[in-house]
Each structure stands twice: as structure tokens, then as C-alpha cells.
Lab assay of single mutants.
Amino acid sequence: MQGVVKVNSALNMRSGPGSNYGVIGTLRNNDKVEIIKEVDGWYEIRFNGKVGYASKSYITIVN
């Protein structure tokens, strides 16, 4: 499943599904990501070869 990031500035990509996990990357508005699965309001995603987590509130699913 594919998604597009929708933010005003930047979205942190984290090592786990929560804001208490470390930041491993930064996503920008309109970045395209691969959604692997949903975990407690977060998406596990793949972006630029990295796998991490981002809040699903800021990612819109596209077909």
C-alpha cells in the first residue's frame, strides 16, 4: 500500500510506534512512502530504503 505525507513542515520517522521512540529520519510534505502495516495509530513504513514508523494522522493512502 502506498501513502503520501501531508504536513506543513516535517514529520519524524521513528524507530518504533510512538513519540517516545528515537527519530531515524525526516519526511517532508508530499513524500511518497510504502505502508507496511498499522500499529496503534502509527504506520510502519519504508522510505528511501529505511523502515520506521510515522503517525498515520499525517499520511494519506493513495492507490
Rank of each mutant, 00 (worst) to 15 (best):
V51A: 13
S55K: 12
N29P: 08
E44C: 05
M1A: 13
D40H: 12
V51L: 11
V23L: 07
V62A: 09
S55R: 13
K37N: 12
L11M: 11
S57T: 12
S19T: 10
P17L: 02
L27C: 04
V5I: 08
N12Y: 13
I36N: 07
Y58P: 03
N48C: 05
K6V: 14
T60N: 13
V23N: 05
I45R: 00
N30E: 12
S57D: 15
G16V: 01
A54V: 15
N48G: 09
V51K: 11
G49C: 07
Y21E: 04
V62K: 08
K37Q: 14
K37D: 09
M13Q: 03
V62R: 06
Q2E: 15
R28W: 15
K6N: 14
T60R: 12
N48R: 09
I45G: 00
K32Y: 14
V5H: 01
A10W: 10
Y21V: 02
P17H: 02
R46C: 05
Y53E: 00
V7E: 04
I45Q: 00
V39R: 06
I59V: 11
K56D: 04
G25N: 08
G25T: 09
K37V: 09
I61K: 08
K50M: 14
R14Q: 07
M1V: 13
T26Q: 09
T26M: 09
G52S: 03
S19A: 15
K32Q: 14
F47V: 12
N30I: 03
Y58M: 12
V39F: 08
Y43S: 02
G16T: 02
S19Q: 10
I61A: 09
Y21A: 04
G49H: 15
E44P: 00
A10E: 13
T26L: 10
V7H: 13
K32E: 13
G25I: 08
S57Y: 12
G52H: 02
I24K: 04
I59A: 02
P17F: 01
G49S: 10
R46G: 10
I35A: 02
G41T: 09
I24V: 15
K50L: 14
K56W: 04
G22I: 13
K56G: 07
V4F: 05
I35Q: 01
Y21Q: 03
V33D: 00
V39T: 08
S19M: 13
E38F: 06
T26A: 07
Y58H: 15
Q2N: 12
N12G: 10
V39N: 07
I45S: 01
W42Y: 11
S9N: 12
V23D: 04
I45N: 00
S9F: 14
G22L: 14
N30Q: 12
A54E: 01
M13L: 10
I45P: 00
T60I: 13
N8Y: 07
N12C: 05
N20S: 12
E38S: 07
M13G: 01
R46M: 15
L27D: 00
N8W: 08
R46V: 15
V33R: 00
I45E: 00
I59S: 01
W42A: 01
P17R: 02
I24F: 02
A10Q: 12
N8V: 14
A54Y: 01
G25C: 05
W42T: 02
N29C: 05
G49F: 07
R28L: 15
M13F: 12
S9L: 13
I59L: 05
N63K: 08
K32R: 10
L11H: 07
I35E: 00
K32A: 11
L11W: 02
T26V: 13
G41S: 10
S9Q: 14
V23R: 06
W42L: 02
P17Q: 01
E44G: 06
N30C: 05
V62T: 12
V7L: 06
V7T: 12
I45D: 00
K32N: 14
G18W: 01
K50R: 10
R46I: 15
A10Y: 12
G49M: 09
K32H: 14
Y21R: 03
I61D: 05
E38D: 11
G22S: 13
K50Y: 09
S9Y: 11
D31R: 03
G22Q: 14
A10L: 11
Y53S: 00
F47C: 04
T26K: 13
I24T: 10
V4T: 10
A10C: 06
K56T: 10
I24Y: 02
K50D: 14
F47R: 05
Y53H: 03
S9T: 14
A54K: 00
